[in-house]
Design a protein around this nucleic acid. Structure first.
Lengths: 146, 146
DNA sequence: GTATCTGCAAACTCTTTGCAAAAAC
DNA sequence: GTTTTTGCAAAGAGTTTGCAGATAC
């Protein structure tokens, strides 16, 4: 587990937030999940198994809080729901491959955009703070099964 | 106007769709708009002025139809609503600059991603059909007014 | 004439919010 | 003890759908 509960507690306390069981449970679900790009509903489904009393609204609030604390990054893959993934320092330097057939999201780490960014900043007088690159297509499995 | 009503009629008839006043009006609103990235609500607001009887559902249905006919391209800038723009052959080769302050969307035409795509296709066995590159930041106007 | 299309209202999905009860510190 | 947090249900935004009447061809 790359992200310890201690770190979570630290980050919460720094901002006067409390470490509640729900927040701990949601964080644990995240660290345990093999899939890294999770929606609120995904998390809700995972935590409800062992903690049926937890509410969907709490999941939403917790994910938003974690995003505000730079623990998670909120992302949008255009399917009408937000997804969250751990906000590592590399998160801005990998790109997403989104399968149009099965919806799977893969990552491709490689940052070729730094030079493009500075070109744009000069030409457009637009101050870039983040970028997002997505490739849509068909994963190997879906290509094979057609 | 780059896109004539004749072309629209042609494309519709080819697929056994009819050219209705509503479809014509919506297409005209699109060609007349200085802003190129329009939401359903944007279009609805524009057409309602002269045609108050037109329904929002019709706007949605028409935009989706146009997208299916490759007349418009449906896009998602992460603000919770879909936007549409004319689907020119260059549409896949320009990228978007999205201002986090005023929400304005600008374009940056330049395609440096072809070589990156073939690298990814080889390394990941992922067949790419489209890509999308967005830069988030602050436009010149918003940077100045801060 | 007939199949398509429209407008309306209701339904739907994802997300947010108001509030009283519960819990962290 | 007090402030934060929770669960619930209701509201909210954007979009879709069912249906009866209207319309393009």
């Amino acid at each position: 587990m790359e992200f310890s509960l201690e770190t979570l507690k630290q980050k919460l306390c720094d901002r006067e937030y409390k470490l509640t069981p729900q927040r701990r449970i949601i964080m644990e679900a995240f660290t345990r999940s093999p899939e890294k790009h999770l929606s609120a509903e995904d998390i809700y489904g995972m935590v409800k198994k062992n903690n049926p009393e937890i509410g969907l609204a709490t999941v939403y609030r917790t994910l938003d809080l974690f995003a505000e604390l730079d623990i998670l990054q909120k992302m949008d893959f255009g399917d009408g729901r937000s997804r969250y993934e751990f906000c590592t320092s590399e998160v801005h330097h990998h790109h997403h491959l989104i399968c149009l057939s099965c919806g799977k999201v893969m990552e491709f780490g490689d940052d070729l955009l730094e030079s493009l960014e500075s070109t744009i900043e000069k030409k457009s007088r637009f101050r870039i703070v983040d970028h997002e690159l997505k490739f849509y297509g068909y994963c190997a499995k879906c290509t094979a099964s057609k």
